Structure formats: structure tokens, C-alpha cells
Simulated scan of single mutants.
Amino acid sequence: MTEKLLRPMRTRPWYARWLIRLLGAALAAGAHLLFLPSDPRNRSATPRATEETTPLTGAGVLLLALALLLLAAYFGHWDRLGWPLLLVAVPPAVLMHASLRAHPGPDASFRPLAWGLFTLLVATGVFVTAGVARAFRGEWAREDMSLTNPL
């Protein structure tokens, strides 16, 4: 089973590529929902307060970052470079946008800026991680070729 997961995407049939890509996008969205839960009852403590209670924790943010970086490394290593951005960075960005839009309040003016900043941060991390994983792909491919072809 693991030898099937650890093959380049271009060597797989089209249905397997798309199934793995959909699974990756679902894992990215699931990690966001698991580690950064959204509470629809999230309201301010007093009527004039600008701060809301939040279920976010530092450990949840770190675990989400780790999960997204692992997914980005996997797809960056085995697939083309553009796919990690679509599969790993877009689902959390969409969920974050939906979460920020669900809680309108008096401080809503900073939310588009915060969403853009965090989306840019996630996309940059995914892109850099995928690029580093892609660099190791070439190194491993040369090692495999040197083992099979001694000339």
C-alpha cells in the first residue's frame, strides 16, 4: 500500500491522481476544522465589547501548521508544483473566510485584511515547503537511476 502512495503522480492512472488530490484537499479542510473549530455561538461578552470569545488555541494553530506543511511536502514531492497551493492552501482559506463572514460585528473592518494576511502566510508556507520537497525529489530520482543504471 505504501509503495502506491509513494510514487510520482504522473505514473498513476488519472482516477487515482484525482482521488488522491481530493483526499488531500479533504484532509486540509478537515485539519482546519479539527484544529481551529468555529463556534457559531461566538459572541462578545457585553453589548459594546469588540472582543469575542474564541475557541482558538496556540496548540491548535501549531498543529494545523504542521498538518498543512506535511500535506504540502507530500504533494510538492510527488505532484506538480501548482497543486499544493490548490489542494492544501485553498480549503483552509475558504473555511477561514466563511468563519470570518459568519461573525459580523463592530470590528468587522479588520477582517478582510486579517483574512488576506493569513491566507498569504499559509500560501507562502505551502509554496516554500512544496518547493523544498520538490528539490529533494530530483536528488532521490538521481539516486534511484544510479542504482538501476551503473553507467
Rank of each mutant, 00 (worst) to 15 (best):
M1K: 09
M1T: 02
M1H: 13
E3I: 13
E3Q: 14
L6H: 09
R7K: 15
R7P: 05
R7L: 15
P8T: 12
M9W: 13
M9E: 13
R10C: 02
R12M: 15
P13L: 00
W14M: 09
Y15S: 13
Y15Q: 10
A16K: 02
A16C: 00
A16G: 07
R17G: 05
W18S: 11
R21S: 11
R21M: 11
G24H: 05
A25G: 10
L27Y: 07
L27T: 04
A28P: 10
A31D: 06
H32D: 13
L33I: 08
L34R: 14
L34K: 12
P37W: 00
P37L: 00
S38K: 09
S38D: 15
D39W: 03
D39C: 09
P40F: 00
P40C: 02
R41V: 10
N42M: 14
A45T: 15
A45V: 15
R48S: 14
E51F: 08
E52N: 11
E52C: 05
E52Y: 10
T54G: 11
P55T: 06
P55A: 08
T57G: 05
T57M: 03
G58Y: 14
A59S: 14
V61P: 05
V61K: 06
L62K: 06
L62G: 11
L63F: 13
L63K: 13
L64T: 02
A67R: 09
L70T: 07
Y74R: 07
F75K: 07
F75S: 05
G76I: 01
G76R: 03
W78I: 01
R80T: 15
R80S: 12
R80D: 08
L81A: 13
L81Y: 09
G82L: 04
L85Q: 00
L85I: 12
V88C: 07
A89D: 01
V90M: 02
P91D: 05
A93K: 04
L95M: 03
H97M: 14
A98H: 03
A98R: 10
S99Q: 12
S99K: 05
R101M: 14
A102Y: 02
A102Q: 09
A102L: 05
H103T: 05
P106G: 15
D107Y: 03
D107N: 12
A108I: 04
S109H: 10
F110P: 00
F110N: 04
F110V: 15
F110T: 11
F110I: 15
F110G: 08
R111D: 12
R111W: 05
L113F: 13
W115E: 08
G116T: 02
G116C: 08
L117G: 03
L117Y: 14
F118H: 11
F118R: 08
T119S: 15
L120G: 14
L121D: 05
L121R: 06
V122Q: 12
A123K: 01
T124V: 10
G125S: 08
G125C: 06
F127R: 10
V128M: 01
V128P: 03
A130D: 07
V132Y: 07
R134M: 01
G138A: 02
G138L: 04
A141V: 15
A141G: 01
A141F: 07
R142V: 06
E143I: 07
D144G: 07
S146H: 13
S146M: 10
T148D: 00
N149S: 12
N149G: 02
P150M: 09
P150H: 04
P150K: 08
P150G: 07
L151I: 11
L151K: 10
